[in-house]
Amino acid sequence: MIREFGAGVRTLLRGFGLWRTRPGLMALGLIPAVIAFLLLAAALIPLLLSLGGITEWITPFAAGWTEPWRSILRGAVGIIVFIAALALAASVFSALALTIGDPFYERIWRAVETDLGGEPPADGGGFWTALGEGLRLVLLGLLIAVLVLLIGLIPIVGGVLGAVGGVVFTGRLLARELTGRAFDARNLTPLDRAALFAGSRARVLGFGVATQLCFLIPLGAVFAMPAAVAGSTMLARTMLDRATTLPSGPRPSASGPVSGPGIPSTGPA
């Protein structure tokens, strides 16, 4: 399991490798990422500035507490609220970037698919598909944020569990969503996708957690997004190569091994 998790992390690193081999193509992915980042920052900065008032509203029962207990409680609640907001922000950022930048990320996806061997079987969706999946991503991200907030309220260990849970839950969600274009292009059913994810849980989680941690770095999401799109395509192809059959029938061909010209390789996974 640890080896598979590490293989997922290395898949994201291979995606970053395209900054060296395909810098012009990857730079295109910065445009929607910057726009999404600026829109998200416009919401997060006011939240951060008003965090004190929000924590007071959540904890009115602590108004009569003596110091330092009141400040400790409200400080901890403020941290939990911000962690939950970051969990939601990752989903919103990805949804915005993928929807705004659908033509840009399609070019990255198609180039990686071609380098891995053969033309992709379809166009992988389009704007309306990206919009629908983006809305679903935001709704699921909202559910994760609420869950992280509830976990964070557990006495003593809540803050740590909430932070770890936020990274794990959001990372898994991002990995599943980012591989969507490759699976849409092959017309895989939800049952087919569930079978693929079931066979590579640790690898998918490793890729998703690494992506989410990059997103938490200031401006990291901007530079990581094109790499995540490229890496998720490699991840999807690996999952297809490893599958022997899908519940609905024979697996679609991945059109070659997960390596190729312009695709940095870290060696056997």
Rank of each mutant, 00 (worst) to 15 (best):
R237T: 05
A269K: 07
G159M: 08
G171Q: 07
T245S: 12
L86G: 03
G199S: 05
D184N: 07
I31T: 06
P103W: 14
P23M: 14
V9T: 09
F5V: 11
A90H: 07
P252N: 08
V81D: 00
D115M: 07
L13C: 13
S200D: 11
G180I: 13
L86W: 00
Q212L: 10
R203A: 10
G220T: 11
S232G: 13
G17L: 13
E56A: 13
A97Y: 09
F5Q: 01
T211Q: 10
W69G: 04
G53A: 07
R172F: 10
L219R: 09
R14P: 10
R107K: 05
L150P: 03
P120E: 02
L73P: 00
A89Y: 14
T99S: 15
S232N: 12
L142T: 09
P250W: 07
G162E: 10
V164H: 08
A163F: 08
W69Q: 12
T59D: 07
F61Y: 06
T244Q: 13
G6D: 04
G64F: 04
A62N: 06
V229P: 00
A42M: 07
L18E: 03
V168Y: 13
R176A: 13
G267S: 09
G78C: 03
R201P: 00
P190H: 02
R70V: 15
D184E: 12
P121R: 06
A269G: 10
F207V: 03
P121Q: 05
T238N: 05
I263H: 04
S248M: 06
P120F: 01
G260Y: 11
P46M: 05
L139H: 02
L178G: 01
M239I: 07
G256M: 09
F127A: 14
S94I: 15
A122H: 09
V204S: 04
D102T: 14
R22M: 05
L28C: 07
G17Y: 11
R176I: 15
I54N: 01
W19M: 14
V229I: 14
L161W: 08
V9G: 03
R172A: 12
A243D: 03
P218F: 10
W69H: 12
T129C: 13
P250H: 02
A145T: 04
P218M: 08
F223W: 10
E177K: 15
G231Q: 07
L131V: 13
A33V: 14
L149I: 15
S71C: 06
G199V: 07
G256V: 08
D192P: 05
G64E: 11
T179W: 01
I108A: 01
A269T: 09
G152L: 06
V167D: 03
A243W: 13
G132P: 05
L140K: 09
P60E: 08
P261I: 04
T245D: 06
E4M: 12
A221N: 15
G75I: 08
V168A: 14
A195P: 00
I263R: 13
R201A: 02
D192V: 12
A175E: 04
L73I: 06
G24H: 05
G171D: 01
V168H: 14
G249S: 02
V168Q: 13
I2M: 11
L153H: 08
P250G: 02
I154C: 01
G75K: 04
L25D: 02
L40N: 01
D102F: 12
D241V: 15
V157W: 09
S71T: 02
V157A: 15
A175W: 04
D115Y: 06
I80R: 10
I144Y: 11
F207N: 03
L88Y: 09
T66N: 09
E133W: 06
A76N: 02
A228C: 15
